[in-house]
Nucleic acid binder design. Structure first.
Lengths: 269, 269
DNA sequence: GAGTGGTCTAGACCACAGA
DNA sequence: CTGTGGTCTAGACCACTCA
């Protein structure tokens, strides 16, 4: 009932009124789902705005309407909009700047490069990464790829192999797999250093989170050759699955990293 | 001025009034520090409550006064107290339970064990860790220890060496260094599996964050012997500095982990 | 000076837990 | 039934940015 009201009236803008109406709707919802059917208003605002971001209604870097305008459009109070905007900001999807406005997070800028890159130089360097693609091909998805990316048996993937340097120091070789259906033509594009901004701008796929599993391994012969060190050298293996705004696993990335001059930084709170 | 007012009137409870008085004080503050001297009220409430937690005024697991009581005591509105409590909750220092109250986070319970332990079994297991101390001694701080723990040249440390198992599978050997002065008598105590709850209950030191630097290394002979694998086996080295509520580095921990059956889990947002 | 986000208040009602 | 945290509103003022 709550969601119906919400979805059924997108054109007139009002999510739903508070107070009396809300009370009635809340009880109806409770009857339907026990007592767990309650979804706060700001959560619905969050979802609305999230959908607009996922649908690229607003482009990265672009300014959003002010809190007051959004509140009026959605038929809720400014405080409720604020709570939703704060939540989206906490999820790194928006950036708020006092006195200026609220903007769609631009994951192309310098500070955002490191959101998903935890490799840092041991010493002082900036840690800026560079990349060189060493291979790219389309193929039938392997069992591993189907498992990581939640693909059907007949699915095809594009595999990208590249080497990366941090502060001009060669130290990473990685294989990236994405579903061919989600990223049409990606094998024919000149790939940028930061793939996730390409996903966002060209394919409308925004990476929201990533799960990384780290292990220590001995370098195999191919990786050793690419990194120009002896086979068997200990290396850090990072197995990453990147998740988009709609909670789909959209990229699997297996990176093998030399850690002589760099380390993986993890901050626990 | 802001802080003076705040610190000078702890007994009458009022932080400071809003509106007119605040405006005047704010301007005075601005004159002193340019325009950056502004500290929001809820931030001061946060600091007050944080200090009480650091001073162990409230014990772990204990219930705090209700929002209304705290608001009345501190002379601010309930909404301001709420904002401070929410921030403390986000920092994992409090736990809020609707209908029951706000509690001091108890980092002894099962879910909190994993806040600072990112090693997980590859398969299904619970991942519960166990420990066995293999050595403990007091000594003069090494250069590394002085650097990590910010100690003076003459400082002494207590070093704890132990091996750990995850799901009964031996996989970690680690050396823990703490300043002897901060943890008097710790070398004579029967050490629990979860050291951080000991730090909190016996020494009033609450670990708030930890910075971990990960590298892949080849096992040295001593570690290899303790872990019963060949020397040279690739292993994950975790170099952790734990920071307490007052932002002091209080523990340095160097762990060497076999990753045949476990991995290090890192969630990026 | 106008417009934006940030803070603070006061008061209402809702969901939840427990006596 | 009472008390707690959770949500929502309305309105005020503050700090910041920029034309």
């Amino acid at each position: 009932m709550l969601d119906t009201t919400f979805d059924a009236l997108p054109t007139d803008g009002a999510l739903r009124r508070h107070a009396m109406e809300r009370s009635g709707e809340g009880q109806a919802g409770s009857r339907r789902t026990g007592t767990v059917g309650f979804r706060p208003l700001y959560r619905q605002v969050y979802d609305t705005l999230l959908k607009r971001l996922a649908d690229a209604v607003w482009q990265p870097g672009q300014i959003l309407p002010s809190e007051g305008q959004l509140a009026a459009e959605l038929g809720v109070s400014q405080g409720t909009v604020r709570k939703a905007l704060d939540a989206l900001t906490a999820d790194s999807l928006l950036v708020r700047r006092q006195g200026r406005g609220t903007f769609v997070a631009d994951h192309d800028d310098k500070q955002s490069v490191f959101r998903f890159l935890k490799l840092r130089p041991d010493g002082d360097g900036t840690g800026m990464p560079t990349s060189r693609v060493t291979g790219i091909a389309e193929a039938a998805a392997s069992a591993d790829e189907r498992g990581r990316l939640d693909l059907v048996r007949s699915a095809r993937v594009v595999r990208i192999e590249r080497v990366r340097a941090v502060d001009a120091k060669l130290c990473v070789v990685e294989t990236i797999s994405v579903a061919a259906g989600l990223f049409p033509g990606i094998a024919q594009i000149e790939l940028p250093n930061t793939l996730y901004s390409l996903y966002a701008t060209r394919y409308g796929i925004t990476i929201a989170t990533a799960n990384e599993r780290l292990k220590a391994v001995a370098l195999g012969p191919r990786e050793a050759e690419l990194l120009q060190v002896p086979a068997g050298t200990p290396a850090l293996e990072i197995d990453r699955v990147a998740i988009d705004l709609e909670e789909r696993p959209v990229e699997w990335r297996l990176s093998t990293c030399l850690t002589q001059d760099i380390h993986y930084l993890s901050v626990l709170r």
